[in-house]
């Protein structure tokens, strides 16, 4: 196994961004979430037109130490919750995904033009990056299944006691700025705004 980072490019036409997810991000109450909200549908189409869903990922061997220690490809870390999530795993995928800078620009524009558009875009962008992650996840799952193995739930830096500081390590091994234009700011927040990085355990 070598360390070459792979690039994934989402197919916008095939990608499903569920309207109900967008509605949920907008704070619609459960009863109000019904199919066919014209505003939401239009925003989803708009986002699909500007987003460029991309990710970098790579698979690494995994081992543990102490009670809550994990040997990550970038160094040794401690996290009880991630350790629990990775129980039974022998390898991990690391990935970082984004829907691209054009979305951020559209959002900045909307902030000046119209708050309603900005809020709708914001919610739709959040649903869009989740959709990209789900699609990538499904692809990695196929890969694992073909080897008779299964994947655990994805776990991101900042969840529970898996510290946000791990972003630095993830970025140092995946180098997403080079491949998909995704960079890490000093605050450990990613730019473009709608981006996700995570660990996925491979069991078996």
């Amino acid at each position: 196994m070598d360390n070459t980072v792979h690039t994934y490019i989402a197919d916008n036409d095939a990608l499903l961004i569920p309207g109900r997810e967008v509605a949920r991000y907008l704070g619609y109450s459960r009863e109000a979430i019904i199919a066919g909200d014209e505003l939401i549908d239009r925003t989803i189409e708009k986002v699909k037109g500007i987003m460029a869903g991309k990710a970098v990922y790579c698979r690494y061997p995994l081992s543990f130490f102490d009670e809550d220690g994990i040997v990550m490809p970038y160094g040794r870390i401690h996290s009880t919750q991630l350790r629990e999530n990775l129980t039974g795993c022998t390898e991990i995928y690391l990935f970082a995904a984004t829907i691209g800078a054009a979305f951020d620009r559209e959002l900045t524009r909307a902030r000046v033009r119209s708050l309603a558009d900005a809020a709708l875009l914001q919610a739709t962008g959040a649903a869009a990056i989740e959709a990209v992650c789900d699609d990538l996840n499904a692809r990695l799952e196929m890969e694992a299944l073909s080897e008779g193995r299964k994947l655990h739930r994805r776990f991101s830096p900042g969840y529970g006691d898996f510290e946000l500081d791990n972003q630095k390590g993830l970025f140092s091994v995946l180098n997403p700025s080079k491949y998909i234009g995704l960079s890490l700011m000093d605050t450990l927040i990613m730019s473009p705004e709608k981006s996700v990085s995570a660990v996925i355990g491979v069991e078996g």
Binding site: A101, R105, S177, K178, S183, M185, D186, T187, S191, P192
Partner: peptide, 13 residues
């Protein structure tokens, strides 16, 4: 000389 790995403002920091 390659890129710095960080996005410039206003996209990045």
């Amino acid at each position: 000389i390659g890129p710095l790995g960080k996005l410039l403002k206003p996209l990045g920091d």
